[in-house]
Nucleic acid binder design. Structure first.
Lengths: 337, 337
DNA sequence: AAAATATATTAAAACGGTTCGATAATTCAA
DNA sequence: TTGAATTATCGAACCGTTTTAATATATTTT
């Protein structure tokens, strides 16, 4: 059997209280006692039992990570990477991250994730767009939570945001600086605040450089269909057929951009000579597409790490005022521009 | 505060033992007592506290899910889907799945996942190829584990296998039946038993139909480089340049096939008229590539579910003899053949 | 030198469940 | 009718920690 705190206490000739104190670095323990206990711990390879510790401290030691079922599969590895970032951060700490998905038609009565029903988490990270009913539930039940890459307009929740506006602005400005005059926008639905922000970055970059004529609705294509890739293909087809003068496309994410690439290639136009293409996210595939995709790198691991940190601080200090943390992005130039 | 078992007992006018009995459906409880207790539980929305229960039963209530760091990112959503399958199965039960990755250069001394170091799991699922040192560790420490989509030659471990041989055989036979005479093979390293099996299915299908001349080494390309996609591109390039007569390529997985597709398109050959392409796995992207990819569907969710079930049985009956469960695959015909 | 403070250790009471064994009431078999 | 078996309930021990408050000793301050 695995040794318990009692075994350590006996072996070291002290009470279990003292062992607990060195375990948690609390109170006063004489230096030589401490080191004696520590060496016994080493020797017996002792680890405190999670459930016992959690029972005593009245914490669960878990954070939840919730994502739309569709997102987890569709948006490639974007959210998986954010999850990994959280998991990495949690490794240096005493928390486990429980990943689960919720269905598109979410009803808190029946679809509440198990770890919420059983109160098995101390807090929750919500990745990407997430059912409003879920957010309301967490808010009402006072479960600490942070929104990751999402926000609720008009509400002041804890969130980790990506600097979508500046990323888009930089991307489009880069396109303009390389001489592109007719820059189109292709993306998903404006339901997602990130898309909105990226679109805003796009338009304001155009404005700054006096390319207002790009801003007609004709130059942008937004639709909410099954997959981002399909949006890219359909969008590129329609825009390029109606407007052969288009010489660059800024895409609202990389998956969409991959769709655009394949459509442009089918139309026998050269990339980047005839049409330059810019993505957003820097998913792993972006580096291996042909041509390799220029994009705005979103540091996904760092986002996860930041989400973890915020959640952790929230647990330590439950009355902390909600805050927003903005994660900077980086321009990555490859072959598609 | 959340109600405890004591609150339920008081409210129902019984002892906590009795409440515990109905909670766990054990022993004898009079029908009317049971229903009285149940309605109190309903009314107060009581849930037993995980850590308390786990402390008492001496179980952790967790299973681990371990995967190479690279795999989780590279092989698209294959393993994420298997994870999801496990998570779905666990939902109807009392287990949580803790997902973590291990580095390529794994050393049990320093890189042991936290939940193993702290003995926080009752069992572990290992997805795909996984460090031998990790398997040895689990075996020595008698941690129940199952290999998913992997096996160790010569060792009799619990595992969930995909029917790679028959899948490959079917795929190649399908190609042959549509008149293809020169069928190439492109894939990753033979380090992975699945690749070996798929190659065996490939060769035996050729043999059965008297296409032995395909079997020269010239018709297959295997390399272990960064990404499967790149393997596909390089492989297709080399094979098609040296052997213009090749009229079909069987790929060891879908990601590789996507690489092959883009190489073939770059060589200005038509798919499937000039070259038919067959994948393996049926990753989500397969349905949205152009042309859409014909492939062998591997039921990833089901694999996860089966892994969970096997692990669960293993916990119930620790002295169960190691067993292998084979998951059947399905041919999916789309546009690339 | 006495009082106050800091250091060191521990016994015992939680934390919220499960389970063993005792006890009592009821049903069954001989 | 009696003894055994079954049904029903509960007290108490236990699971492995943390934490509070008490006690003892050493050190500092007045």
């Amino acid at each position: 059997m695995a040794p318990t705190i009692k075994d350590i206490a006996n072996e070291a000739g002290v009470s279990i209280s003292t062992v607990s104190l060195v375990l948690n670095q609390k109170g006063y323990v004489a230096p030589q006692t401490r080191s004696r206990i520590e060496s016994v711990i080493q020797k017996l390879n002792y680890r405190p039992l999670h459930s016992a510790r959690k029972l005593a401290t009245q914490q669960t030691g878990n954070f939840g990570f919730i994502i739309w079922e569709g997102h987890f599969s569709e948006v490639e590895l974007f959210y998986s990477q954010i999850f990994l970032g959280m998991e990495y951060a949690a490794r240096h700490n005493d928390y486990y991250i429980l990943l689960t998905t919720v269905r598109e038609e979410f009803d808190p009565k029946t679809d509440l994730p198990r770890f919420l029903r059983y109160r098995d988490v101390d807090g929750v990270a919500l990745a990407g767009r997430v059912p409003g009913a879920l957010i309301d539930y967490l808010d009402n039940q006072h479960v600490p939570f942070v929104l990751v890459d999402y926000e609720v307009p008009g509400k002041n929740f804890n969130c980790i945001k990506i600097d979508n506006y500046n990323g888009a602005f930089q991307a489009v400005e880069t396109l303009i600086k390389t001489g592109r005059k007719h820059i189109a926008f292709v993306g998903g639905s404006f339901f997602h605040p990130s898309v909105k922000e990226r679109y805003r970055g796009y338009t304001e970059a155009l404005d700054k450089h006096g390319l207002k004529h790009n801003r007609s609705e004709d130059y942008s294509y937004c639709e909410n269909i099954e997959t981002s890739r399909l949006i890219g293909e359909k969008g590129a087809m329609r825009l390029l057929e109606n407007h052969p003068e288009i010489d660059a496309v800024f895409c609202c994410n990389d998956t969409t951009a991959l769709g655009v690439i394949s459509a442009v290639q089918r139309l026998k136009k050269r990339i980047p000579e005839d049409v330059a293409i810019f993505g957003f996210d820097d998913i792993p595939t972006a580096e291996f597409s042909s041509p390799k995709l220029s994009t705005i790198r979103v540091p996904k691991l760092e986002i996860g790490k930041e989400a973890y940190k915020l959640l952790y601080e929230l647990i330590q200090n439950p009355r902390m005022a909600p805050q927003t943390r903005m994660i900077a992005v980086e321009t990555i130039l490859r072959e598609s521009t």
